[in-house]
Design a protein around this nucleic acid. Structure first.
Lengths: 334, 334
DNA sequence: ATGAAAGCGCTAACAT
DNA sequence: ATGTTAGCGCTTTCAT
């Protein structure tokens, strides 16, 4: 298409009247080369429009400078955005260190995920950052000979580095805020309790209640599929038991809840207060704008990338566990 | 971490008492090997837990089986989802053909994009599918020696394969529907007219008006930054001129428009009707639910991948241009 | 039906 | 201050 065939380091060397070693060292700055020679080499590279072949480089140096990120990036509109923000954070760090990011989607399904890990295994990656879709799976035997950093979620018995959100503290804070406003019947809506994240959010909810001497009424707690319709249905069922506030631990489900409340003309926060997970644009345009928990998605990615780079530099350093704070953004829905 | 070091085809060959050639042929099915020998080889691969090194394979075979997708996947909540859906479509096809997908983000900025193309150039990719962020840039001289398929947008004078949405037809249909309902003062809100997509949408709007003998009033046409706030502002300015309907050619801007109308308690569709681009979940929970144009994102990806695979098989085939239909979903906002 | 061996483009140890 | 050269792990031509 564009220009000539396969210009290699050899062609450059010949054209510049130097050895391939010199060319390589000019490219990588790995040993002293006189200014004059450097100039000649650069000239030759320009003349021939040389482009390094990083496949050959990886094969030889046994380093790809590629980090993979495996997460359920396509699972839903919102989880998608969350993880893409994470990806942006990862990339911002990697770019500075001249690493590449490869995105892989797990579909939030074990089979897909397993497949992807296997594929990545043969692709020569220098590290894997992943948000596991399951807690129980034995990931260890799938991994190749590269460091792994868990992000957002952690499988049981992991002895790997991880970077997660402090879901419990912020959920507790949210519920406490509700309690502070006088609410006693606070409902809880979430997806199935299969992820560490969901579990922690629930734990925060329970702890806030119990510390305030309130009982966790089972009819006010409902978990179901993560979808708009499911949120709608659960809200409908829940409202029968007359909660004065609802805590929704998932953004898409929150859409369903708001849809229901709007449709039934149930006033927020007059008749029922609402707090939901995740700060996305739509939460600002509901009436009233929603009180939400904002997760540090980008920062999560930044930290994970930093941990990964540390680990690559030092395989024997002690395992790191980072827990980032989320933020409660109070708006008119409570 | 997991198991032993670098098991190569050589180790497998030795362990199975065959040549490396035979092992290679067993792996790739590239020539006849007796059942007995096959068995031995597979046994050896299992015993040693052999994993193919695809870097070496790529170097030797000059094929990476990797297709890159370069798009503004991180630019905003919604464009992000659109392009990730495209990516899902691409991947679904590539997977069947044992190709890998690498995602690259352009940030919708020329500099970033140029950078990424350069990086990809050295990564040995077999093809590039991209949504160019600019129409004017001379992409051709950035590309390496691989096929390129443009997606969603096309730079001027492109002679490459492309897969786009028929924006003009569907925009025209939307505006005609509005006209059919008796609207005469139909406003137009969009981002800057720099992309082929935006331009086509505008063209559809103009054509619908002109065919209906309506004048395109310049005070009813406003283009600005693509953001919620910008949409809000433009709606505010526009309402002074009393449109009876608004066509918003961007999803995020539509959020801003709806926010404004809600806040000012302007009734939709009573006082003003609204049609917007893109079917995302939030458009279903506004009051009233929005009439939107749904783009075939996934299908766009599927088609682009198919075109790419065709092109790889046959470099000299005539250039393909595919224009997929979008769909008007009529809901209560008009 | 299988093996031997060259070589993809690069890095890096060893020379000079 | 620079050059020579042996491989990294694989595919593939040429033999047998």
């Amino acid at each position: 298409m564009s220009d000539s065939k396969n210009i290699s380091i050899k062609d450059v060397a010949k054209h510049a009247n130097v050895s391939t070693a010199t060319v390589s060292h000019v490219i990588n700055g790995t040993r002293f080369v006189s200014e004059e020679t450097k100039r000649k080499v650069h000239q030759a590279m320009d003349d021939l429009n040389y482009r390094i072949n990083s496949v050959a480089r990886s094969l030889r140096s046994r380093k790809s400078h590629v980090i993979a990120f495996l997460a359920p990036i396509l699972a839903s509109e919102t989880s998608n955005y969350f993880f893409m923000s994470v990806a942006a954070g990862i990339q911002s760090v990697l770019k500075q260190h001249r690493y590449h990011l490869v995105l892989s989607d797990s579909h939030e399904e074990e089979e897909y995920e397993t497949d992807e890990i296997r594929m990545l295994g043969s692709q020569m990656i220098d590290g894997l950052i992943m948000a596991p879709s399951s807690r129980g799976l034995d990931y260890e035997r799938l991994f190749g000979d590269y460091p792994v950093v868990y992000l957002d979620r952690v499988p049981s018995d992991s002895e790997r580095d991880c970077v997660v959100v402090d879901n419990k503290t912020v959920s507790k804070e949210a519920v406490q805020t509700l309690i502070g406003k006088g609410h006693k019947r606070i409902a809880y809506i979430s997806g199935p309790n299969t992820l560490t994240t969901t579990e922690e959010r629930f734990a925060g909810y329970l702890e806030a209640l119990s510390e305030a001497g309130l009982e966790a009424a089972s009819e006010l707690i409902s978990m179901g599929e993560v979808s708009l319709n499911s949120g709608y249905k659960l809200a409908e069922t829940l409202m029968v038991h007359e909660p004065t506030a609802i805590f929704v631990s998932d953004n898409v489900m929150a859409m369903g809840v708001m849809f229901y409340l709007q449709e039934k003309q149930i006033h927020v926060p007059g008749q029922v207060a609402v707090v939901a997970y995740d700060e996305f644009q739509w939460t600002r345009i509901t009436s009233p704008p929603l009180t939400v928990i904002e997760q540090p998605a980008f920062e999560l990615g930044v930290k994970a990338a930093e941990v990964m780079l540390d680990r690559i530099d030092n395989a024997d350093a002690p395992v790191q566990e980072h827990r980032l704070n989320a933020k409660l953004i109070v708006r008119q829905s409570i």
